[in-house]
Simulated assay, not measured.
Amino acid sequence: MNIALFGPPGAGKGTQAKELSKHYKIPHISTGDILRANVRDATELGLKAKEYMDKGELVPDDVLIGLIRNRLTEPDCEMGYLLDGYPRTIPQADALTDILAEINKPLDAVINIEVSDEELVKRLSGRRSCSCGESYHLMFNPPEKEGVCDACGSGLYQRDDDGEEVILQRLAVYNEKTKPLIDYYGNEGLLVNINGAGAVDEVFRDICNVMDQHK
């Protein structure tokens, strides 16, 4: 099954994608992971991407779609894939459609996790991180001792992009650039909306109900 997972920042795409990948034994493919792997391995496209990343610029669509094409032709994608966070714009969606047709791996469904802006701000602003890599949430997954990491005892901090002002800006960018894809894939007959406001296991179950139809 070939699935793309959509949703605004804080909707839980990453959390769901990891569990879905394990459950269905198909690779979870995120653009961030692909970029880091290709830069680390110094591939031709990775080196091109690094030139832009080192200057703080966005990696051009042609480089990014080339990286995704290469990733989707790897052996572990033979039984399907789970795209997370791509495409983000209409031009990217057009390019992806062409690539998927070329390699004969078209999308079976685009699953859109819907969460209100109010709930997203609550989720994102409550996140706390530790330098050791552990993460917490003040409401959903608090540390045993306030402000202190359970794993290493270090102080927790709030990421700059988890402040409310930045969150609202991220949501504005999503609504402007990415939300039009909802109509794009709706017109293609691929879109399935999932209520993402419930518990993680409830959202997982609802997504599985959709994916089971495409086994």
Results as ranks from 00 to 15, higher is better:
Lys13Tyr: 06
Leu190Glu: 00
Leu191Asn: 11
Cys208Gln: 15
Tyr52Cys: 07
Leu72Pro: 03
Val210His: 08
Asp162His: 09
Glu51Asn: 07
Gly189Tyr: 04
Gly12Asp: 02
Ala4Leu: 08
Ile90Phe: 02
Glu19Phe: 10
Phe204Met: 10
Ile103Gln: 06
Asp94Gly: 07
Gly10Gln: 11
Glu146Asn: 09
Gly155Ile: 03
Val121Lys: 12
Lys25Asp: 14
Arg40Met: 13
Glu202Ile: 03
Val200Lys: 15
Gly126Phe: 03
Arg40Trp: 01
Val63Gly: 12
Asp62Phe: 11
Leu82Met: 03
Ala93Trp: 03
Gln213Thr: 02
Ala37Phe: 01
Ile194Glu: 03
Pro9Ala: 15
Val203Cys: 08
Glu74Val: 02
Glu44Ala: 12
Ala197Gly: 07
Ile3Lys: 08
Glu57Cys: 14
Glu51Ala: 15
Asp117Gln: 09
Met139Ala: 10
Ile65Met: 04
Met79Pro: 04
Lys122Tyr: 13
Asp206Asn: 10
Ala11Asp: 04
Glu118Met: 12
Lys13Arg: 14
Leu72Ala: 11
Cys152His: 08
Ile99Gly: 13
Tyr174Val: 01
Glu144Gln: 06
Leu82Tyr: 02
Val121Ala: 06
Asn38Ser: 04
Leu168Pro: 00
Asn175Leu: 12
Ser135Ile: 04
Phe140Trp: 08
Cys149Trp: 07
Pro87Leu: 00
Thr178Asp: 03
Thr15Lys: 15
Ala37Met: 05
Lys22Arg: 15
Gly196His: 13
Gly196Met: 01
His214Phe: 09
Ile26Asn: 11
Ser135Phe: 13
Arg170Val: 09
Tyr174Leu: 08
Asp162Arg: 07
Thr178Gly: 15
Leu171Val: 09
Ala93Thr: 01
Thr43Arg: 03
Gly198Met: 10
Leu35Gln: 00
Ile111Trp: 06
Ala93Glu: 00
Asn195Ser: 14
Ile68Gly: 01
Glu44Cys: 13
Leu20Met: 08
Glu51Thr: 15
Lys22Cys: 05
Ala4Gly: 12
Thr89Asn: 02
Glu118Cys: 07
Lys18Asn: 14
Met139Glu: 07
Ala199Arg: 15
Asp98Ala: 15
